[in-house]
């Protein structure tokens, strides 16, 4: 995470990939334990990753990373379960097991983000879609959409922030 904050893209990608695996294991187990639909896990994984990304500035690099990660993940989990209609207390200890059991396989498709993406302003939606779904770089997106790179960056950031907001407000299916 330290190198990632210093701008090392490879490190950041690897970190987020690893975190996705850890979160997936923990979130599936949590959903199952509390009697929720495990099929929703990937949506929550994605929402949590966005939160980790947008709130990375709140991690104090002098402090251990795991407690911070645990706090962010718990917050998103509680938020999600509350939206699904029950008030739930998640014991923090559960989270420790996560380290032993990452789940690399994304077996169930996540579609909540796609729904939220459709609600974004068109410009932001196009940029986020180009970079995520179509796998373009910032430069390629700029060329493709005939925008300046700076504008692409701004639209991407606003788009991701808006995605997080849309997820928060969403009625769960």
């Amino acid at each position: 995470m330290r190198s990632a904050l210093d701008g090392d893209e490879t490190a950041y990608r690897r970190l987020l990939g690893d975190l996705a695996g850890l979160l997936r294991g923990w979130i599936r187990r949590e959903l199952a334990r509390q009697g929720y639909n495990v099929a929703d896990a990937e949506d929550i994984v994605q929402e949590t990753l966005i939160a980790i990304h947008l709130k990375r500035g709140t991690w104090d690099r002098e402090r251990p990373f795991l407690p911070w990660l645990r706090a962010i993940s718990r917050h998103k989990m509680v938020d999600n379960l509350r939206r699904r209609g029950r008030r739930i207390v998640i014991p923090i200890e559960e989270f420790a097991e996560v380290l032993a059991a990452p789940e690399p396989e994304e077996s169930l498709p996540a579609d909540a983000l796609d729904r939220h993406l459709a609600q974004l302003p068109k410009g932001q939606e196009k940029v986020v879609r180009a970079i995520s779904v179509d796998g373009m770089s910032i430069a390629e997106t700029a060329q493709h959409l005939m925008m300046k790179e700076g504008a692409v960056r701004v639209a991407l950031h606003r788009g991701l922030t808006a995605l997080a907001r849309a997820a928060r407000r969403a009625e769960t299916t």
Partner: peptide, 22 residues
């Protein structure tokens, strides 16, 4: 959207400086 695709977009957005509350 697949999670790996989402990660692509997060990585692309990572260049900007993030200021904390302080």
């Amino acid at each position: 959207m697949k999670t790996d695709q989402l990660i692509d977009s997060l990585v692309a957005d990572q260049g900007r400086r993030v200021n904390g509350s302080g």
